[in-house]
């Protein structure tokens, strides 16, 4: 059941890859440099797949679109020079979180799962509100002088580890506590009690 759903998805991914390559070539041909071209493509894929996550009926496809979205985001991280982060994004998000979510979807998907009503009644106001949020953020961003530096800084693993283990060793340690707490509680909650409801 899972497999026959996955096959079209993999096909879809392949198509996206081809389209991406073609689009990049075309953008470069139109006069953009490679970084810009990639940015545009990743941005388009990210937004497009993001929209699919929140609008598609079949929740499994939503999950897969989310993987695509996060993949594109990782690409943008690379453009920004945060390669290490991009790697973490792929490993943790695509590798762990997304799989976890897909797993949960399959656990809780009933046969007669109502795909009839994806949205709540207040979907239209929510859409309007979200558009307003986007516009406000965009306007604020454009109107603000961020005082950004002219050149960009490449993040080396060296610099990163220095920051991480000198200034932020405490959060780093605490994250492990957080994960421990989450796992203990999560296991407790998800565990089936003997004699409890199946």
């Amino acid at each position: 059941m899972v497999m026959h759903r996955l096959v079209p998805i993999i096909l879809g991914l392949a198509v996206i890859g081809v389209v991406t390559a073609v689009a990049a070539a075309m953008l470069v041909f139109l006069g953009q440099n490679w970084a810009d071209a990639l940015f545009w493509i990743f941005a388009a894929v990210m937004i497009g797949s993001g929209l699919m996550v929140v609008t598609m009926r079949d929740i499994i496809r939503c999950g897969l679109a989310m993987i695509v979205c996060f993949g594109a985001l990782a690409g943008i991280y690379v453009i920004l020079g945060a390669t290490l982060l991009a790697a973490a994004q792929v490993i943790v998000y695509i590798g762990a979180i997304s799989v976890l979510i897909l797993f949960a979807i399959m656990l809780t998907q009933t046969k007669d799962a109502p795909s009839r009503l994806v949205f709540q009644t207040q979907a239209v106001p929510a859409a309007i509100a979200s558009i307003v949020i986007a516009i406000i953020i965009a306007l604020a961003v454009v109107a603000t002088d961020w005082g950004e530096a002219a050149q960009r800084f490449r993040i080396t693993a060296d610099a990163l580890s220095k920051v991480l283990f000198e200034s932020y060793v405490l959060p780093f340690e605490v994250i492990s506590v957080l994960l421990l707490a989450a796992v203990i509680g999560g296991v407790y909650l998800a565990k089936r009690e003997p004699g409890g409801p199946s």
Binding site: F119, A126, S130, I137
Partner: peptide, 20 residues
């Protein structure tokens, strides 16, 4: 990048508010 992030954020908040 910030506008892109803002867009994704808005999409996310739409999904949160609208999905069942």
């Amino acid at each position: 990048y910030l506008i892109l992030a803002g867009l994704l954020f808005a999409i996310g908040s739409f999904g949160f508010l609208a999905r069942r």
